[in-house]
Amino acid sequence: MLRHLVLFKLNEGVTRDDPRVVAGARAFEELGGLIPDLRSWECGWNVADRPIAYDFAINSSVEDAEALQRYLEHPAHQAGVALWKEFSTWVMADYPF
């Protein structure tokens, strides 16, 4: 199994109530039920208010590298990424567990 973690940071001046952000969060919240290769799916807004904190997180798992690739290429994932590219930057890690 692989864990896929992504942490998103909203760009300067962008807030959670921005309509683009609301649409992006909704798109990612729906992914868990849309992509069969996902074994687990969690996402949500960070509640910590520290300077090093990111704003939004995805924590998911897939069976293997091939399943991860199918997830990354899935049209629903690509649509969500396209939204988030407009207003954020992110870091990610994939690791076996």
Rank of each mutant, 00 (worst) to 15 (best):
1 M>W: 07
1 M>G: 13
1 M>R: 08
4 H>I: 05
6 V>F: 02
6 V>C: 02
7 L>Q: 14
8 F>C: 12
8 F>T: 04
10 L>V: 06
10 L>P: 13
10 L>F: 10
11 N>Q: 11
11 N>P: 08
11 N>Y: 06
13 G>H: 15
13 G>K: 14
14 V>E: 05
16 R>C: 01
16 R>A: 08
16 R>D: 07
18 D>S: 06
19 P>F: 08
20 R>L: 14
20 R>Q: 14
20 R>A: 05
21 V>L: 14
22 V>D: 09
23 A>E: 10
25 A>E: 13
25 A>G: 07
25 A>C: 06
29 E>H: 07
29 E>F: 03
30 E>L: 13
30 E>A: 13
31 L>R: 07
32 G>W: 00
32 G>A: 01
32 G>D: 06
32 G>L: 06
34 L>H: 07
35 I>P: 15
36 P>G: 07
36 P>E: 11
38 L>P: 02
38 L>Y: 00
39 R>M: 04
40 S>A: 01
41 W>S: 00
41 W>H: 05
43 C>I: 01
43 C>D: 03
43 C>L: 00
43 C>K: 03
44 G>Y: 03
45 W>V: 09
45 W>Q: 01
45 W>I: 05
46 N>D: 11
47 V>K: 03
47 V>D: 02
48 A>F: 09
48 A>I: 03
48 A>W: 14
48 A>T: 14
49 D>T: 09
50 R>A: 11
50 R>P: 09
51 P>A: 06
51 P>R: 06
52 I>M: 02
52 I>W: 14
52 I>L: 08
53 A>E: 09
55 D>G: 05
56 F>H: 00
57 A>W: 02
58 I>S: 03
58 I>H: 00
59 N>L: 13
60 S>T: 00
60 S>Y: 00
61 S>Q: 04
61 S>Y: 00
62 V>S: 01
63 E>T: 04
63 E>R: 00
63 E>Q: 05
64 D>F: 15
64 D>S: 06
64 D>E: 11
64 D>C: 09
65 A>L: 13
66 E>C: 00
66 E>S: 10
66 E>N: 11
67 A>T: 03
67 A>D: 01
69 Q>R: 12
72 L>T: 01
72 L>N: 10
73 E>N: 15
73 E>D: 15
74 H>T: 03
74 H>Y: 02
75 P>G: 05
76 A>T: 13
76 A>M: 08
76 A>D: 14
78 Q>E: 10
78 Q>L: 12
78 Q>D: 02
79 A>Q: 08
80 G>F: 09
81 V>T: 10
82 A>Q: 11
84 W>S: 03
85 K>F: 12
85 K>L: 12
85 K>D: 15
85 K>R: 15
86 E>Q: 15
86 E>V: 02
87 F>T: 07
87 F>V: 10
87 F>H: 06
88 S>K: 04
89 T>G: 14
90 W>L: 11
91 V>H: 02
92 M>H: 10
92 M>T: 06
92 M>D: 06
96 P>S: 14
96 P>C: 10
97 F>K: 11
